[in-house]
Simulated scan of single mutants.
Amino acid sequence: MSPHSRFGAHSTVRGRVRRLLFGMLATFAMVLGIVVPGAATAAADTVIDTITIGDAPQAVAITPAGAFAYVTNLGADTVSVIDTGAKMVVGAPIPVGSLPTAVAVTPNGNRAYVINANDGTVSVIDTGTNTVVGKPISVRFFPTGVAITPDEAFVYVTNSGANTVTVIDTATNTVVGKPILVGFFPTGVAITPDGAFAYVTNSAANTVTVIDTATNTVVGEPIPVGTDPRKLAITPNGNRAYVTNQGDGTVSVIDTATNTVVAVPIPVGNTPTGVAVSPNGNRAYVTNSGDGTVSVIDTATNSVVDAPIPVGDTPTEVAISPNGTRAYVTNSGTNTVSVIAIDRCLGSLCIDFGSLTGSSSGADSVFN
């Protein structure tokens, strides 16, 4: 056996031994209620990095592999790309249209679709070269929201100024069918994990409209929610939709099986805007634009856990990494992106896995 082979074998054995020891220590600690080295009692999620970005960052979307985050700069008409590993902006800002308000990345990670509100267009970025491909796609007046079907075949765009939703075929990057009439001033849109339905917030109507994506027609009556609903996120199992109500500082929860609101609205911070649900479905992260914080909702109890997390001024959107260890928050008032480390706990015990694996990346080294 070569020295390289022996080294690899020994490294593998050491890794297995460390993982085995960690499992034993963690179990022992939970049973006896003690804290092992590298462990601490459960604590609120905290900001671990702040990344300077372009002018008035608005929306953020992360690639499926988690390597890059795409951020729209509302005040500069550009998109910046963050290398999430290096925690820094890479390359020059990508010029797009006027007032880029939203961005979504295709499930295969090859394209990013950017909504240009002032132009009434959609720009398409090739994420391999970080350049815009083709001409901007014309939609309707003042588009603001975007979502892509899980099979990446179609893009749904909310046209706030036209009270409609436009559908784009990603194979040709052309609009298909007629605009779908929804409620007054639609802003956010999210698609169920099975791709069957698109949920649209109608900000001026205080409702959510449901679209059947097979027929691109509205189903049922609009769902009443809170005042001035802006964005929404659907849980990974597709059972619930979380809607931010900017006008009354709450989050409404919709049961997608019955399309009715469950329980009472959840009070969060001032002017809630963006929302994202963790990949395991346990938490919903809400940006409170009016008080510079992020609220965390326990989706099992639909209640806020711990104190709000301070971030930058006027946080607008939030996206969570695919491995569920980081939340990225755009702060339009300070031209930054806050990076929140998401707690990974075993019962009442939160472990810094990095101290046991020899890695500086903490929980990432185990939970990737």
Rank of each mutant, 00 (worst) to 15 (best):
A196Y: 05
G290M: 06
I340E: 12
G220W: 07
N323S: 02
V268I: 08
I180L: 07
N110W: 10
A162H: 09
G333Q: 01
S5C: 07
V208P: 06
P310K: 10
D364A: 02
A196S: 14
Q246V: 04
T209N: 09
I34A: 13
G312P: 15
V243A: 09
V189L: 02
I48A: 14
A147V: 10
N108M: 13
N130A: 08
R16D: 11
A319D: 06
V35T: 07
N206D: 07
I266P: 10
G195A: 07
R6K: 11
V311F: 00
D343P: 01
I309L: 14
Y156D: 01
G292D: 04
V261A: 11
R230D: 12
M30A: 08
T260N: 03
D45P: 10
I53L: 12
F353L: 12
S295N: 01
P186F: 10
I62H: 05
F184L: 15
T299W: 08
T260M: 11
V96S: 13
N216L: 01
N282V: 11
P236F: 00
I94W: 01
H10F: 14
S332R: 01
P322I: 04
V329S: 11
V251D: 00
V176S: 06
V264Y: 06
G134K: 00
T213I: 13
R283M: 15
A276Q: 14
D45F: 05
A43Q: 09
V218I: 14
G15M: 10
T258N: 01
D126W: 08
G66D: 00
V286D: 03
S252Q: 06
V103K: 10
D212R: 15
E317M: 03
T301C: 02
A363G: 09
G97P: 14
T357Y: 08
I351V: 13
Y113E: 08
I137Q: 07
G292N: 09
V210Q: 05
T201N: 06
I266A: 07
G161W: 12
S359M: 14
P95I: 03
V339A: 09
D248P: 02
N239L: 04
N202Q: 02
S348R: 05
D228A: 15
I115C: 01
S203H: 12
F185H: 10
T301W: 00
Y285I: 11
I94S: 06
G220T: 05
I48L: 14
F367K: 06
V261E: 09
L21D: 05
I342V: 04
S332Y: 04
D77K: 12
F185Y: 09
V294T: 00
I320F: 11
T207H: 00
V132T: 08
D364Y: 04
A205G: 02
Y285T: 02
I342L: 15
L99M: 12
A9W: 07
D364R: 10
V294K: 09
S365L: 08
T72L: 03
S365A: 13
L232G: 00
V261M: 03
R111L: 08
S98M: 07
T50G: 09
A59I: 15
T129W: 08
D55M: 11
T174C: 15
T144W: 11
T187E: 14
T149C: 15
T52C: 00
A363M: 12
T52D: 13
G333S: 03
T250N: 06
V165S: 05
L232T: 01
F154I: 09
I211A: 03
P179W: 10
N163R: 08
T256P: 05
T330N: 05
A42K: 13
V253L: 02
